[in-house]
Design a binder for these strands. Structure first.
Length: 195
DNA sequence: CTTACGATTGCCT
DNA sequence: GGCAATCGTAAGG
């Protein structure tokens, strides 16, 4: 069981190899980035708990979903204790369940390895919407909460430790030199640069 | 109220 | 490698 009440920077490498599921679709995570809230100018939570990132200041184990460039819905797993903001952006993965549904969502032109490669593509593969922001993940088969934050999302820790390579984050202008991106070496589903 | 901007992607040259 | 698409937010008047 992954302890999501720790800071995102500590949690991020442990999410590599984990399985996130939404309904019939399951994805094995191969690329993530940590966003560290109030101490990270690149984080949507940098300016405090107002606005779209307010949910990041809530309890860990929920989703923070945002719209990128008016088109793409990107998924974060919220970390740190209630009242502290940090989160892990899920950037890429390998589709391991619901392959036909993902193919229908992503269209016929996408190569298999790109079905969930890149944060927008991963979100589309999992069928995430803005309304999923704040929803709770059921962890490792444990029952989801009964407080209204439950939907059909779950997260399973990897069965064995997974190798991680650390790099700088992708697509940001602030705090861009900080090495808070984690990838599984050699994974063909990783988006962007591999070092 | 008005305007500018992305934690991106895919198509074009 | 360059760049347009597209819309919820955030910033500005």
């Amino acid at each position: 069981m992954i302890d999501l009440s720790r800071p995102a920077l500590d949690v991020a490498p442990h999410l590599l190899g984990a399985i996130i599921r939404h309904g019939p679709v399951s994805v094995r995570i191969t690329e993530v980035e940590a966003y560290m809230g109030l101490v990270d100018p690149a984080s949507h939570a940098f300016n405090g708990p107002g606005g779209r990132a307010a949910v990041m200041f809530g309890p860990p184990g929920r989703l923070y979903v945002y719209l990128s460039y008016g088109i793409h819905h990107c998924i974060n797993v919220i970390c740190s204790p209630d009242g502290v903001a940090s989160g892990v952006l899920l950037r890429a993965g390998e589709v391991v369940g619901g392959n036909q549904i993902v193919r229908d969502r992503r269209g016929p032109k996408a190569p298999d390895r790109k079905l969930a490669s890149g944060p927008g593509n991963l979100g589309q593969a999992l069928g995430v919407e803005l309304a999923d922001s704040g929803m709770a993940l059921a962890l490792d088969g444990f029952a989801p909460p009964t407080d209204g934050t439950s939907s059909d999302w779950s997260l399973e820790a990897p069965s064995a430790p997974v190798a991680a390579r650390i790099t700088t984050r992708i697509g940001i202008s602030k705090n861009a030199e900080t090495p808070w991106r984690f990838i599984i070496p050699g994974e063909p589903t990783v988006s962007g640069r591999r070092h």
